[in-house]
Computed example of a mutant assay.
Amino acid sequence: MEWNERIAFVRKAAGLTQEQLGQLLGVTRQAVSKWESAQTVPDAVTIARLCEALHVSADFVLLGKEPEPPDNAGDAPPYALPDTCPCCGRPVSGTICPVCGYTLPTTPPRGPRYAIVASRVSFVNEEDRAAELVKYCGMPESYAKAAVHQMQEYASFFLLRRNLTDSAAQWIAAHLDGSCFSLRIVQDNGEESNDALLTKPKAMELPAPAAPKQGGLGFWGVVGAVIVALLILSFF
């Protein structure tokens, strides 16, 4: 399998179309198509972004080096990934939700469940806030707009989503604009009434806001590794 075939392989393994992968990387569907047909070669920064987005190594994409299997591989039966995203509830056919970007865990969910409660801090643009609720919480657009309007007009608490794992709750909280929403993650014990969750105390601290994909030393470390790998390929 050549490098271009491996790009197609990891894209399909993540359950993404060429257009969806292009959206994650900030390129067109045509660009992805040309990579996969070996008509063009993505630059080092783009390959680093691809590896980061799809959680694969540059060594595998460029050189075909398989990751080392864990020592206990094969001891437990394989875990079947859910077919809907735990965050936004949309259909997922691979390991990454093509809408909200959440990476599905490869082990069965354990531990308590959580809910996210929000109220208004400041809504500079109601349309943008509603779009966040549609993307990350899976709300229908009309419902999201009504929720934002209610929080804006009455400064009331609103249940955004419930029955979440800890990682899903933190993913949503990290990607909603904390300068506009006042968020609280509470424990969801299966209360019959949604209203019962609105007054519960926080069950965990809020995560740090999600960092831009381009930033961070880790990202540039991957870029450096990709450049080295490209230099190696140039000798073949």
Score class of each variant (00 low, 15 high):
207 P>E: 02
24 L>I: 11
8 A>F: 00
173 A>D: 11
231 L>P: 04
71 D>E: 13
73 A>Q: 01
85 C>E: 06
131 A>S: 13
205 E>A: 13
56 V>P: 00
165 T>V: 09
217 L>N: 09
88 C>F: 10
178 G>N: 10
116 I>Q: 03
96 I>R: 11
209 P>F: 13
118 A>P: 07
47 I>D: 05
192 E>T: 13
53 A>R: 15
234 S>M: 01
169 A>M: 13
19 E>W: 02
116 I>R: 01
179 S>F: 08
161 R>G: 11
114 Y>D: 12
188 D>Y: 05
113 R>F: 06
158 F>C: 15
171 W>E: 03
180 C>H: 11
159 L>Y: 12
205 E>C: 15
178 G>E: 07
167 S>F: 08
85 C>F: 04
100 C>P: 11
171 W>D: 07
133 L>R: 10
63 L>Q: 14
105 P>W: 13
217 L>T: 06
126 E>I: 14
45 V>N: 08
215 G>L: 08
10 V>T: 12
17 T>G: 07
8 A>C: 01
171 W>P: 01
95 T>W: 01
96 I>P: 01
110 R>S: 06
179 S>C: 14
197 L>G: 03
193 S>N: 07
98 P>C: 09
215 G>M: 05
221 G>V: 15
135 K>F: 02
169 A>G: 12
222 V>H: 00
188 D>P: 04
144 A>W: 08
66 E>T: 04
170 Q>P: 02
214 Q>H: 10
32 V>H: 05
65 K>W: 14
12 K>V: 05
3 W>E: 10
85 C>Y: 04
148 V>I: 14
167 S>N: 15
230 L>I: 03
